Amino acid sequence: MAMEGFSGVLRRLEVDGKISLIPKCKKGHISHLIFADDLMIFVKAVSDSVIASLGALDGFASYSGLHLNRAKSSIILEGLTHSNRMQLLELTGSLKDGKPDSYPMRGGCSLYPLFFKAAISIGQASSAPDLALLLREKFTISPGKLSANQNMKEGLGLKRIKEMNVAGIMKQFWWIASHKNSFWVNWIYTRYLKNDSIWTVRPSSNSSWVWRKIIKYRDIIEPHVHHLIGDGRLTNLWLDNWHPSGILLKRFGDRIQYDVESPRLAKVVDILREGEWHPSPPTSMELMETWGALPDIHKLPYADRDMVVWKDTLQDPFPPNQVGILCGIMPLRLSG
């Protein structure tokens, strides 16, 4: 989760024009890739981009304690004259000069003309001394006695690892459910959700560990994620949480879509006409219940797009708002 902060720094540098991306990476706004403690940065081989990238790493280290391990990091330069190559290597200090053919990437970004391969390690200066300082602020230590100071009532400021892990997974789920415009979310929809919804898809036996973890917490997140209907074009009629009964396919089963001869991926717009509800005649008790609740559903203006919002509930496993706060989501309170 800490590396998300670094992603934000690079996004800001890209928006401000302080780094230039490799041409093949511009469309997807791919400035870097992260896996565990490995980091790869893709920028043009110009001095401004190199200086800004190194400055981002130094700034990130100052507030996170995660430092660049120069002994295990390298820079790959290609398509440059010898003099330009030496100038950029001098800017990077002690980074090793890597070989372009050592890191092939097929079907993705070209490595031309600059590629950092950085190893991130935890700096000693940001661990034990800081924790010792924190403990001295919160406790008074005397021989044979440990007593809390007055400001201890505010707590140590530490978060439970289990809750933070759950919050991180829920944040990823929120990105998917709210269709965040990102390379990773687009890949998820292409790989796992081409013909299904995040709420109803079943992970296959060869699904990744991360994907199975995301699906594991689906039932906890479901009451929070709600669709507000505008023009109805972005919300699945049977597979999204927009109706008072919840996700209709989970509530009534596959039969409800067969009763109206509707495809699995039908949209809410299919039962709207000029902004007003216009469903097909009910042919079952389930449809009578479903269509009967439509007049009570609050809708956005028909000209607006559908919205995905975070809804607080009284049955939260965490204190009020804590899930949304941990996930970086601003909750929107809805009636009911």
Rank of each mutant, 00 (worst) to 15 (best):
A2P: 05
A2T: 12
M3N: 11
E4W: 06
S7K: 15
S7E: 15
G8W: 02
R12I: 07
G17P: 06
L21S: 01
I22V: 13
P23F: 03
K24L: 14
K27N: 11
I34K: 11
I34S: 06
I34A: 12
L39S: 15
M40R: 00
K44S: 11
A45I: 01
A52F: 02
S53N: 01
L54N: 03
D58F: 11
D58N: 13
A61F: 05
Y63F: 14
Y63N: 00
H67D: 06
K72N: 10
S74D: 05
G79F: 07
L80D: 04
L80W: 09
H82R: 15
N84M: 10
L88V: 10
E90A: 15
E90F: 09
T92D: 08
G93L: 00
G93C: 08
L95M: 05
G98P: 12
P100Y: 01
D101V: 05
S102D: 08
S102C: 06
Y103R: 04
P104E: 02
M105N: 14
C109W: 02
C109G: 15
C109S: 11
L111S: 13
Y112Q: 10
P113T: 11
K117F: 12
A119C: 12
I120C: 02
S121A: 14
Q124F: 00
Q124M: 01
A128T: 01
A132W: 12
L133Q: 04
R136A: 03
E137N: 11
I141D: 05
I141Q: 05
S142A: 14
P143F: 11
G144D: 06
S147Q: 13
N149H: 00
R160G: 10
K162V: 05
V166F: 11
I169M: 13
W174S: 04
I176P: 03
K180Y: 15
K180S: 13
K180I: 10
S182Q: 09
N186C: 12
N186E: 09
W187C: 08
I188N: 07
Y189W: 01
T190M: 09
K194L: 07
W199I: 03
T200D: 02
T200N: 11
V201D: 09
S205G: 03
N206W: 10
S208A: 07
V210N: 13
R212L: 08
K213C: 10
K213H: 07
Y217R: 08
D219T: 14
D219I: 02
H226N: 04
H227G: 08
G230A: 06
D231C: 08
G232P: 04
G232T: 00
R233K: 15
L237F: 10
W238T: 09
N241K: 10
N241V: 07
H243F: 07
S245Y: 13
I247D: 05
K250G: 04
F252P: 01
D259F: 10
D259W: 04
V260K: 04
R264V: 12
V268N: 03
D270L: 02
E274C: 13
E276I: 10
P279R: 12
S280K: 13
P281R: 09
P282T: 05
P282R: 11
L287N: 07
M288H: 10
M288F: 14
T290N: 03
P295T: 03
D296L: 03
K299R: 14
K299I: 00
L300W: 04
P301R: 06
Y302C: 06
V308S: 00
W310E: 12
D312M: 15
Q315G: 02
P320D: 04
V323K: 15
I329W: 01
M330A: 08
P331Y: 01
